[in-house]
Computed example of a mutant assay.
Amino acid sequence: MINHTSKPKRCAEEYIIMTLSGVSSLGILPFAILRLIQQDWAVALLDIFAVIAIGSLFGYVYITHNTKVPARLLAFLAMLIVFISVTLKGSGQLMWIYPALTAIFFLLPVNVAALLSGLVLVGLGLVLYDELTLFLTLEFYVSAIATLLFSYAFSDRMRKQQDQLAELATKDPLTGAGNRRAMEQKLLDTIAFQRREQGYPASLILMDLDNFKKVNDNFGHAKGDDILIAFVDTIEKRIRSTDKLYRFGGEEFVLIAENTPINEAIKLAESLRHAVESDGWLAEHEVTISVGTAKYNPHESAFEWLGRADRAMYQAKEQGRNNCCVA
C-alpha cells in the first residue's frame, strides 16, 4: 500500500555525516575551551572554527537531508584542520590524522579519498621534515599508510555491499525490472515533482500479459518465467533511459514515463503492444498484452493515478485483449 504522508527516511549517508560531524564537533569543543583558557589564540580560533563549521554541516544535513556537498566539505575540513593544527603545533598533533584518514573514506569515493590522503601525508612530511627523525618519520608513514589501506579496503567493500543490498531492495529478482516497493517510491517522487513543476507532464502505462495462467498451464512455470524475462527485455529495449519499468505483481508491469504527454504515451503504449505481439520468441508462444494508459492529473494521489490506468487496462481486456485503452 502506498503511504501518502510518510516523511522521507534518512539514508545511511545522512547518518554517517551526522554521526561524524556531531561527534567531531562535540569532541573538539573542550579543546577549544582549554586553548582559550591557556590563551593559545591561534589554535583556539582554529578549534572554534572547526566546531562551528562542522556543527553547521550537522544542522544542514539534519534539516535538508542533502548529503553530497556536506560530505565533501566535511572531508575537506577534516584534512585542512589537521594540516593547519600540525603546522601550528608540530608533530604532537599528528595523532589526529588517523581518525581523519578513516573518516574521509566514509565521505568520499574511495579513489578520491586515497588521493586526498596521499597529498596530505606528503604535505605533512614536508612540514615536519626538520622536526622528525628518520625513525619517527618511518614510524609515522608506516602507521598512516596502514590506516589508509585498511580504510580503503573496508570502505570499498562496504560500498559494494550497500550497492548489492540496494539492488536487492529495489529490483524484481526474476526479471530485473523495478519491484513494487521501488515503483511506489517512484510514483511518490514523480507526483511530488509534478506538483512543483506542472509544466512537465507525466504518464503511466500499465501492462498485463493476456491469459498468462494458460501459458503456465500449457508450458510450465519455468517457461512462464522465461516469458516474463523476455517480455521485460523486449520492453526495456524500446523505452528511454528516463522511463522506468516496474513489476507490479504477477504478470502486471507499470511503466512510468516522465515528461511525456498523453498523446506520446499512447503512441509508446501501442508500439510496445505491437512489439510484444510481433517479437519472434514471444510470438511463438502467442504472448500478447492489454495496456491501460493514464496521464497524471493535478492533485490526485498515486493510488488514484494507478487506479485509472488499471481500469483502462481492464477495459482493454474487455474489448478482446491485445489492446490499448486510455483513462
Rank of each mutant, 00 (worst) to 15 (best):
residue 220 G to Y: 15
residue 222 A to V: 15
residue 224 G to W: 02
residue 226 D to N: 06
residue 227 I to Q: 00
residue 227 I to S: 00
residue 229 I to Q: 12
residue 229 I to W: 01
residue 230 A to G: 09
residue 231 F to N: 00
residue 233 D to A: 13
residue 234 T to P: 00
residue 235 I to M: 05
residue 236 E to W: 06
residue 236 E to H: 08
residue 239 I to Q: 08
residue 239 I to V: 13
residue 240 R to T: 14
residue 240 R to S: 14
residue 241 S to D: 13
residue 242 T to G: 11
residue 244 K to G: 00
residue 247 R to Q: 14
residue 247 R to E: 10
residue 249 G to C: 12
residue 249 G to S: 14
residue 250 G to P: 11
residue 252 E to K: 03
residue 253 F to M: 15
residue 254 V to I: 07
residue 254 V to T: 01
residue 255 L to A: 12
residue 255 L to H: 08
residue 256 I to K: 02
residue 257 A to V: 02
residue 259 N to Q: 15
residue 259 N to W: 03
residue 259 N to M: 05
residue 260 T to L: 04
residue 260 T to S: 06
residue 263 N to A: 09
residue 264 E to R: 04
residue 266 I to A: 08
residue 266 I to C: 14
residue 268 L to V: 12
residue 270 E to V: 02
residue 271 S to G: 06
residue 271 S to L: 15
residue 271 S to W: 04
residue 273 R to C: 11
residue 273 R to M: 09
residue 281 W to C: 01
residue 282 L to I: 04
residue 282 L to F: 02
residue 282 L to C: 04
residue 286 E to R: 06
residue 286 E to F: 05
residue 287 V to C: 07
residue 288 T to P: 04
residue 289 I to E: 01
residue 289 I to D: 01
residue 290 S to H: 06
residue 293 T to A: 10
residue 294 A to T: 04
residue 295 K to I: 10
residue 295 K to C: 15
residue 296 Y to D: 07
residue 297 N to C: 07
residue 299 H to S: 13
residue 300 E to R: 09
residue 301 S to A: 07
residue 301 S to C: 12
